[in-house]
Design a protein around this nucleic acid. Sequence first.
RNA 1: GUGAGCGUGGCCAAGUUGGUUAAGGCGCCAGGUUGUGGCCCUGGAGAUCGAGGGUUCAAAUCCCUUCGCUCACCCCA
Length: 419
Amino acid sequence: MKKLQAPRGTNDILPDEQKYWRLFEKTSTSLAETFGYSRIDTPVIEDAKLFVRVVGESTDIVEKETYTFKDRGGDFITLRPEGTAPICRAYIQNGMHNLPQPVRLYYYCPVFRYDRPQAGRYREHHQFGVEVLGDSNSTLDAEVIYLAWKLLNDLGISNLIPLVNSVGDKKCRPNYISELKDYFHSSVVDSCPNCPRRLEENPLRLLDCKEKSCLEVISSAPNSIEYLCGECLEHWESLLIDLKNIGVPYVIDNRLVRGLDYYIRTVFEIVPQDSGSQSTISGGGRYDGLIAQLGGPPTPGIGFGMGIERVLLELKKLNHEIDDTKTTKILIAYTDESSKAVGTTVRSQLHRSKITSVLAPSGRSLKSQLRYASSIKASHAVIIGERELENVTVTIRDLKGSEQKEIPQGNLLSYFGKG
RNA sequence: GUGAGCGUGGCCAAGUUGGUUAAGGCGCCAGGUUGUGGCCCUGGAGAUCGAGGGUUCAAAUCCCUUCGCUCACCCCA
């Protein structure tokens, strides 16, 4: 029989790994709550049309990189590949424009992409993100960028600086793109296997080609800021002031573009300095046209998404001690069937007082039971044998030291301070 | 979709000019006397060497196919 294994690009998150995940979850949700964001959970599956409308039908993204299938009723379903579109859908569907604006939301969920896995890229990964809907003021752009940066700081990843850029809006971006095309038409490097095609299909992407021969051409390419219309320029300039006011460091990166057309004006990313290719930890931007595009009222929006696996990769590099929230754990050892029965009632007593305890595995010598206690890092062993049965006592052994004493069964809880 | 590297018990792995029962370490289980752990000692379980086919008297070691993993490209929400 073929060995069963998790599908390509998916991972088990084993018990030893959980402390990192819980740290992230605690840190991120408490930061978001502190800033007045409310949690939202959307379904793992969505109508496939949602993402088609967001990114357009013919791109690689929808054709090759989503998990899309026909369900038993004949509807096309897509496993959510990102957080923003479902939240916009939920905003529209639930009439959230009737809430006080802006609406601040955060999410924490698995997302799916049908990609070949590689370092930092999986078919299932997890994202945390925030979205602010209903206000186009640059203050909120700054707030969102600040949150992404602050979250990483709170986790102890403090050496990262957000990269920011503005890609203009529907009015001014076309001018920029045609300028960019003109520039690359005359200078696109023949030796690059991809840029001639990019020039036709996605000119903005020319700016982040990795080919060495292209770098020089890119460095003197037209700069998007110089093509911003009056309103976009004003938004950009006030963003820089807002960023300063809120106290987040930033670096302007005019080659920064994001893959999707829906981004307007502000785009930003946080990328670790020393890493390989799939390393953007967090990215986001403003998407003022998106909700209208999905059939809702014209509503501005800004947000970021953060890849948790990539964050944890960085976190582990720093080798910080993670507090594993150790509770006292008690192993209940026994020597025969009748003492086992007493052990079972002792366990119930402890559990009622919320004291972590486990019964030793059956059929083992006392020595083996205590070995087991050590291996599961129990803090104490409660030992029940013939003598304890006779005396109606239990023996409590402190496993950090080696003192033990026999106490009346009735004093068990007070021994652990729960009497 | 493209390219490269890799695939030996749960984990880390030695072994590749083909040749007796496929090292070792970690982990797991047991024992080291009479009811007691962590260290140490001894023993045990556990691998048809990813799978299928071929060459050969003989293959984990050579050839072919296939699957899987990893990394990179493409793409990137």
